[in-house]
Computed example of a mutant assay.
Amino acid sequence: MEPIYTADNTTTAYQLNWSLALFGKSDLPDQSAWLEELRAATEADGVRILSANARSENTIQFLASTRPDSSPSDIVRSVKGRLQYLIRDPNPKAFRRNYHIQSVGEANSNVLDQYVAGQTAKHPMADDAVQARIEAVQFHDKSVDLSKTSIGNYGQYLNSLQIVAENIEGWREVRDAQLQRVRRVIVRACEKKPWRLSRIGLLSNHVHVLLGADVTDSPQSVVLSLMNNIAHVYEMKPILKFSYYVGTFGGYDRGVVRKQKQ
């Protein structure tokens, strides 16, 4: 069965920021020798370098923003590969295999967790019975900590995403069976990947999801997968708008990254 929601027919609001650390085998050239060229080169890959700072003689920390179709592994490949090319003459094999990439946002994981947890109170239903029904289908896995990095083949990564999808205009789902099915299909989709699902804030007319995806998963692929899984509950009818929001977050916010630059 063909997916309803695709990259071609959906629009996206997004704020995707990443902190990336690369480690040299020896001292690395000063960024004044390569930063502007690197920015121009990675821009073609959909990776915008906002800042670059030497944390030591052989460690560089980048702050980058990306489009939704870029995964953390894509970002590492773009920045590391293109920088290696630029400094190939003095450093033909400049970098170690390991890296550290971490999602960051304007709000950290604790703030977003509280925000999603408070959605039922923020959008109360007029009918007390319906309100109780909505509250009963909320999901929270306390064992999932979306501020902690995971370990991949060559590095540590954090790909924590906030996802918001809205129903089509005028559609409010208050039926218990359907609400339970939507919750269940999101949980199962995350289990299959596997993604670390922390919260589902399920309302009558929209849904919030907080999860940690794999290093090879782009935000776009994660959201479209969930949206199409939800469509299965409604026999592949487009119950959701052809648009969504996705943002990154982590254990600390961009304010901390800015302070580290000083």
Results as ranks from 00 to 15, higher is better:
residue 191 E to W: 00
residue 250 G to D: 09
residue 92 P to M: 03
residue 74 D to Y: 00
residue 138 Q to V: 02
residue 60 I to N: 03
residue 129 A to C: 07
residue 88 R to S: 15
residue 5 Y to S: 02
residue 143 S to F: 11
residue 95 F to N: 11
residue 130 V to Q: 13
residue 239 I to G: 15
residue 83 L to Y: 06
residue 243 S to C: 02
residue 97 R to M: 07
residue 4 I to R: 00
residue 91 N to Y: 11
residue 233 V to H: 09
residue 33 A to E: 13
residue 186 I to V: 06
residue 6 T to V: 01
residue 258 R to W: 02
residue 69 D to Q: 13
residue 66 T to I: 11
residue 17 N to P: 03
residue 80 K to G: 14
residue 85 Y to P: 04
residue 32 S to M: 12
residue 44 A to N: 06
residue 125 M to G: 06
residue 82 R to Y: 00
residue 86 L to R: 06
residue 154 Y to I: 10
residue 85 Y to M: 14
residue 64 A to E: 08
residue 236 M to H: 06
residue 38 L to G: 15
residue 73 S to I: 13
residue 210 L to R: 03
residue 154 Y to A: 14
residue 254 R to W: 01
residue 135 E to F: 00
residue 5 Y to F: 01
residue 61 Q to F: 07
residue 211 L to D: 03
residue 133 R to E: 10
residue 232 H to F: 04
residue 109 S to F: 05
residue 179 L to V: 07
residue 128 D to E: 11
residue 160 S to F: 05
residue 47 V to K: 08
residue 206 H to M: 04
residue 9 N to E: 08
residue 16 L to Y: 09
residue 130 V to M: 12
residue 209 V to P: 03
residue 134 I to L: 15
residue 239 I to Y: 13
residue 226 L to F: 05
residue 144 V to P: 02
residue 61 Q to Y: 05
residue 92 P to G: 03
residue 208 H to E: 07
residue 220 Q to E: 10
residue 217 D to V: 02
residue 252 Y to V: 15
residue 149 T to W: 15
residue 111 V to F: 02
residue 114 Q to P: 01
residue 71 S to L: 12
residue 62 F to V: 08
residue 83 L to N: 14
residue 164 V to K: 11
residue 23 F to K: 10
residue 171 W to T: 08
residue 78 S to W: 01
residue 195 W to V: 01
residue 199 R to Y: 02
residue 83 L to S: 09
residue 245 Y to T: 06
residue 86 L to C: 12
residue 169 E to F: 04
residue 241 K to S: 07
residue 20 L to F: 13
residue 162 Q to Y: 10
residue 247 G to S: 11
residue 181 R to W: 00
residue 251 G to L: 07
residue 237 K to C: 09
residue 103 S to V: 01
residue 113 D to G: 14
residue 60 I to G: 05
residue 131 Q to Y: 00
residue 231 A to C: 07
residue 222 V to A: 03
residue 145 D to H: 11
residue 134 I to E: 06
residue 161 L to F: 09
residue 5 Y to A: 00
residue 95 F to K: 10
residue 137 V to Y: 05
residue 13 A to C: 07
residue 173 E to F: 01
residue 214 D to K: 05
residue 50 L to M: 08
residue 113 D to N: 13
residue 158 L to C: 09
residue 32 S to E: 15
residue 206 H to V: 01
residue 70 S to H: 08
residue 88 R to W: 00
residue 106 E to V: 12
residue 150 S to Y: 08
residue 246 V to D: 04
